[in-house]
Amino acid sequence: MRDFSYLRANSIDAARQAAALPGAMLLAGGTTLIDLAKCGVTEPDTVVDITHLKGLDTVTVDDQGAMIGALARMSSVADDADIKSRFPAVSEALWQAASAQLRNMATIGGNLMQRTRCPYFRDPANFPACNKRSPGSGCSAIGGVTRGHAVLGTSEACIATYPGDLATALVAFDAIVHLGDRQIATDDFFLLPDATPDREHAIAPGEMITAIGIPASAAARRSTYLKVRDRQSYEFAAAGAAVGVEFEADGRTIKDLRVALGGVATKPWRARAVEEALKGKLLEPDTVRRASLLAIEGAVDHGANQYKIELAPRVVARAILKVGETA
């Protein structure tokens, strides 16, 4: 039997120290960690349980923005009245993710850190080659079943999709990841695979997510997360878009626009080209549709995921038109 030690952290410092041990992993809701342990993907020597830490599960919202503790549950953040009114895209990204049971267990910190659903990554016994799991071993996905794989941000080493919904909304609204005292923009927190797909986040051993800060903005207040998938619930996004808009005083000219894509890229994908193309323009269907095509600039398909290149701009356009309408 594969033994590991279990440590229950009673302070953030203790957790960070324990997490710095070789082979140590933080345990929050466990919905990713234990799942991957069963698949034989993660084999921690030490599991550091952080769920008993006090004060990390709060959500506070004021005029500056929101501060969400790393241990807040997906379900409670999704239901938070202030999050719903000031950051609707965040709430919508959360309640459309996973299932009710998972959302009740899973934490915000763990959610950011969830791993790819690439089937080859999840099956080491049958597919030893996976650069993300064992650097340099190759990529089993390229040339295989790629329906869910990324079309943006891929490299020759890895084409795995970042599957999460929440992070897409966070990236759109310039959220900040708090690692204790260190702070880093979410967009910089998630790394492109390039030649090192095993490195997914700008987080060092011994660091721990303590909170997520989302600055208040008019665009975040008027925002939505649109998730498209074959199954109506409990499925990862075929394509998702987090969008927020702020109009000039005329109520028609776009002053600020935020667009990020989920389910199509190797990391939560901010589509700044779409934002820039539409700022200062009137929100009109044709203009929006044309500009949305910029969302997939540089996209590369691997066969079965080709549809994502068609789909993503349509999701972006629909999301922009939807938030634009709901005055």
């Binding site: 659903r117 089937p119 074959d230 199954r231 109506q232 619930s233 409990y234 499925e235």
Partner: peptide, 9 residues
């Protein structure tokens, strides 16, 4: 990954 209908469907 093998999708069967959920209540929402």
């Amino acid at each position: 990954d093998y999708l069967i209908a959920t209540n929402a469907d």
